[in-house]
């Protein structure tokens, strides 16, 4: 911030021009974010004949989401799976990310290399990752089960993605495998920003490594934890590609990996319904409102926690 002389001459001469710099970003934002959101909203209050807009129906499409048994019975389980993914991501992926970041922060050599290796999978498209894991976990030809049979009793080999009780945990583990590098990098940066003196002072006072972590490192990581929590929440609520690749559009087996994104996909693209656009738009607006609202709430709670420190 030291070399930012922009405000030194006061606001006078520049007051008229500063907002011009916002225009390009604002245009792009309006075109690609605001406009689609508003059209989605407008689509949802009309009935549709294929891609041709028909009559204004008010909230009928929304009412349909909750009165049509087939939607109503899927909506809550799907939401539950999204939340389970969020919880799993927090517990497994982000905890591991933190552990790796801590371990690497002490590494003398190879830190960069390890960080790159751990972060690489998130550069790969989730569809590709889903496909590869489907092959690895295939009960008939997959190497995972061949390996398990070789090292243990036959019961160890399971249809990991074909059993409703293991499918969702597998989704969490595969998500972790792909994304663990992301919290790791964020935590690494945050840990790098904590002055070493704090820990040294505590050690001089006789604190154990665990106490240093619990009372110094972790509290100072709170902003990073907040950011990761919010990003994980949005990521888990919007998940689509991986579950689609692993369990198909119906979130198989037996709907055990069904999520809100798949529900929307089926409503929009996998039904012969003439009013599919109306129903799907209503669902999309509902999901957006829910995710947006929860994110703001979550953000506020986390902020308050930080300020209270």
């Amino acid at each position: 911030m030291a070399q930012a002389p922009v405000t030194t001459r006061g606001r006078g001469g520049r007051a008229g021009t500063w907002y011009l710099f916002l225009v390009p970003a604002l245009l792009l934002y309006s075109l690609f974010v605001v406009y689609p959101l508003l059209t989605g909203l407008s689509y949802s209050v009309f009935s549709w004949k294929g891609t041709v807009r028909d009559a204004f129906v008010g909230v009928d499409n929304y009412v349909g989401l909750f009165t049509n048994e087939a939607f109503r019975s899927k909506l809550l389980p799907a939401l539950g799976h999204n939340l389970a993914l969020f919880a799993g991501t927090m517990l497994v992926q982000n905890t591991m990310g933190l552990a790796f970041a801590l371990a690497f922060s002490r590494a003398r050599r190879g830190k960069r290399a390890l960080q790159i290796i751990f972060a690489t999978p998130y550069l790969v498209n989730p569809l590709v990752i889903g496909y590869l894991w489907t092959l690895l976990l295939s009960p008939t030809f997959g190497p995972a089960n061949t390996l398990l049979r070789a090292i243990g009793p036959d019961e160890l080999a399971k249809p990991w993605l074909g059993d409703p009780s293991t499918a969702l945990p597998m989704v969490i583990l595969i998500t972790t495998w792909q994304w663990v590098g992301f919290p790791m990098l964020l935590f690494s940066a945050a840990i790098g920003g904590i002055p070493a003196e704090y820990a040294e002072a505590a050690r001089v006072d006789g604190a154990s490594s665990w106490r240093v972590f619990w009372h110094i490192t972790l509290p100072l990581l709170r902003p990073a934890i907040g950011t990761i929590t919010v990003l994980s929440f949005i990521g888990s609520m919007n998940t689509f590609a991986l579950v689609y690749a692993l369990g198909g559009s119906s979130g198989g087996p037996a709907g055990s990996t069904d999520v809100l994104g798949l529900l929307f996909y089926r409503a929009a693209f996998a039904s012969g319904d003439i009013n599919a656009v109306g129903t799907a738009s209503a669902l999309a607006v509902f999901l957006f409102t829910f995710i947006f609202g929860t994110t703001i709430l979550l953000n506020r709670i986390l902020r308050q926690g930080e300020e209270a420190m």
């Binding site: 409703p164 037996a254 089926r266 996998a270 012969g272 319904d273």
Partner: peptide, 23 residues
């Protein structure tokens, strides 16, 4: 019989899978 939203085909396909799972 593939009409409806969700289509009856989607509904029945998922139901058959549940049946094969013994549920």
């Amino acid at each position: 019989f593939a009409y409806g939203n969700p289509s009856s085909q989607t509904v029945f396909s998922a139901a058959l899978q549940e049946m094969l799972l013994g549920r």
